[in-house]
Design a protein around this nucleic acid. Structure first.
Length: 254
DNA sequence: CGTAATACG
């Protein structure tokens, strides 16, 4: 089965640029979206009810901000919105779907660049998420934790590591958190299959970064290592619809 | 610069 993760940066924007045709062509079994930037009353029926899919949403409280979604061919056994901590849950960053063989956690991690307060919020979010995922594992769940992490792990994961060592997204403390989740038994599936490939999943719109390939790999499928025997491939897909993020793909044995 | 509502990424 194919599990996609994609920061769409506005579901209404991609809806205008062929999102539904793309879903029809790719036929994801599960599609996780981040930054849908919409609220329930704004969501068109054609986006809520895609043929052949169940859909689940966690909206941010601020209009036009954050929000995550899961589209799924198979109905989830259960859905949880947020992680039970108000200051994080109000931003609509996490949605969790249980399936018979695994639990899928779809996350839009905070961006830490706008202020030191938002950086601290991001760091606090990291700890809360690790606790949340570890609790799922303690309950016996195999977990997939996908989404826009807003962190490049190592120098290979961004074009300009030197000039970004003091920027949120590539700070030592953020990179160490990725080290920590790996130590605790989560696997960066793309890097597992491609240990030496320099490929990115995001390019800033601001500085025409795409033309220079000044990108970052910040979109991941991590899995608990007890799932690795079922992982068949992990990929970063090509540019679609001129978005700043590319979709990333995890393929599991059925 | 792009998205969606005036800020945020």
């Amino acid at each position: 089965m194919k599990i996609y993760s994609w920061n769409v940066n506005g579901i209404r924007a991609v809806a205008k640029k062929g999102f539904l045709d793309w879903v029809d062509e790719e036929k994801p079994d599960i599609l996780c979206l981040q930054e849908i930037r919409i609220q329930e009353e704004q969501l068109q029926k054609k986006l809520k009810n895609i043929d052949g899919y169940y859909s689940y949403f966690n909206y941010g409280e601020r209009k036009g901000y954050s929000g995550v979604a899961i589209y799924s061919k198979e109905e989830a056994l259960s859905i949880e919105k947020g992680i039970g901590i108000d200051k994080f849950d109000e931003e609509g960053r996490v949605i969790t779907a249980k399936y018979p063989n695994f639990t899928l956690v779809n996350i839009y991690f905070p961006n830490g660049r706008s202020s030191k307060e938002r950086l601290q919020y991001k760091l606090d979010f990291h700890e809360a998420i690790l606790n949340y995922c570890n609790e799922l594992r303690a309950e016996g769940e195999k977990v997939i934790v996908c989404g826009d992490y807003n962190i490049a792990h190592k120098e290979i994961d961004l074009k300009n590591p030197d000039s970004n060592k003091d920027k949120s997204g590539f700070l030592p403390i953020e990179r160490k958190w990725i080290d920590k989740i790996i130590e605790q038994g989560y696997v960066d599936t793309y890097r597992e299959f491609y240990p030496d490939t320099e490929k990115y999943s995001w390019w800033s719109y601001r500085t025409r970064a795409r033309e220079r390939n000044a990108g970052w790999r910040i979109d991941y499928h991590f899995v608990s290592k007890d799932l690795m025997e079922q992982v068949q491939s992990a990929e970063i897909l090509n540019d679609v619809m001129g978005s700043d993020h590319c979709p990333v793909l995890l393929e599991l044995a059925d």
